[in-house]
Design a binder for these strands. Structure first.
Lengths: 202, 202
DNA sequence: AATAGCTAGGTGGTCTGACCAATTAGGAAG
DNA sequence: CTTCCTAATTGGTCAGACCACCTAGCTATT
């Protein structure tokens, strides 16, 4: 009949509801550890255990001397955490490349609505800058993902992009980027699928 | 020149390398908190903060009186916890649902080659079983992802699927599954895009 | 009066010691 | 040999003590 639930888990919940009830937003400050301990009838160490756990997930940020703050939800720290975990498991290089390509394709589609003349020029600028292919590709699609306005997809893509650097296979050529720009200029949504399907899978 | 790095973060790394060096497998026992504290020249509270964080990630399990044990990785805890924080932003809900749908769509495409009569029957069986919509959807697409033969995409999708459970919006209907089966029967790859595009985004 | 500098209080970071609760192993009693 | 109990070990929790750091506000100097 004793409390099977650990204190730090209970504190975890309390902090959640506290955030919800007080409608705290990213950037707002939480009560100090000592205050929380007193309010929740718990020891400071238990409160800290809960806070450290939340911190590791990237949901809060602590600044010595100042306090504990809610973080921007945008960080999506979890995505990187989970993604790197998933990607470490044995898998084929082809899976990563294929998955990455799928995300890029869909981002291209999502971005087409926001793609005006100005943005297209931005893409062209990136292509003309003197960099290696990897940097160019990353910069190019970073713009596209921003316009696609889906931060989650972008984060997943970034992790894949990083992993793909360790793979020595590059299958995009200048023609690909060129064709893509034409598609954007003419707003030919229906041609995107083919563009990506015609990429060779080495 | 002081140690900017927090002790518990350092302990975290040490424990990870310890697991790696000693090749500990799920089920194996870690040194006791007091032992770790002594070995790593840290206080027991710092060790505990690290352990609690790892525990929240679902990597270890602690049993009072026995010890701390490695366990097979599960994301459930994590997802539930993160959901309550992240999903407060309406935008992120839509991002997750949209991202999930993209993965499902591409999995459907990838699976079409391996989709024979037998597999189609398997899908039908799932649909006819008495379960709630969530379970049905998960089982249905689990089959598809297996046939798509991309472990990476499947893992990412599973996480998103878990997240979506915490969102009270369901936008697939029986007609969707039915149409999908017809597409598979007739191997109409070209109709998949439209099928998904016609799903309403509530 | 304006500014530079210092001080006190609050905050997170860490350690130590104490005690409780659960489990286990080993010895004592039958 | 079996049963039971005790002691040791381990995680769970708390309290208190410092330290490092930041900030606001006061003080003293210009």
């Amino acid at each position: 009949m004793s409390t099977k639930v650990k204190v730090y888990e209970e504190v975890l919940k309390q902090i959640q509801t506290l955030i919800y009830n007080k409608k705290l937003s990213p950037g707002d400050r939480l009560p100090s550890e000592r205050e929380l301990a007193e309010q929740l009838n718990a020891g400071r160490s238990s409160v800290r255990e809960a806070l450290r756990a939340i911190e590791l997930l990237g949901l809060i940020e602590t600044r010595r001397g100042e306090g504990t703050f809610l973080r921007t939800y945008r960080t999506y720290h979890l995505v990187e955490l989970l993604a790197s975990f998933i990607l470490q498991e044995p898998k084929s290089k082809q899976e990563i490349l294929l998955s990455k390509r799928i995300l890029e394709k869909e981002a291209v589609k999502l971005a087409i609505q926001s793609m005006d003349q100005k943005n297209i020029e931005g893409l062209q600028t990136v292509l003309h800058q003197e960099q290696n292919q990897q940097q160019k590709h990353y910069a190019f699609f970073s713009i596209i993902f921003s316009l696609a306005d889906n931060y989650l997809l972008q984060k997943i893509w970034e992790v894949m992009e990083q992993f793909s650097h360790t793979i020595n296979e590059y299958d995009y050529n200048d023609e690909f980027y060129h064709k893509l720009l034409i598609i954007y200029k003419n707003q030919q949504l229906e041609n995107i699928e083919d563009l990506f399907n015609n990429l060779s899978l080495n």
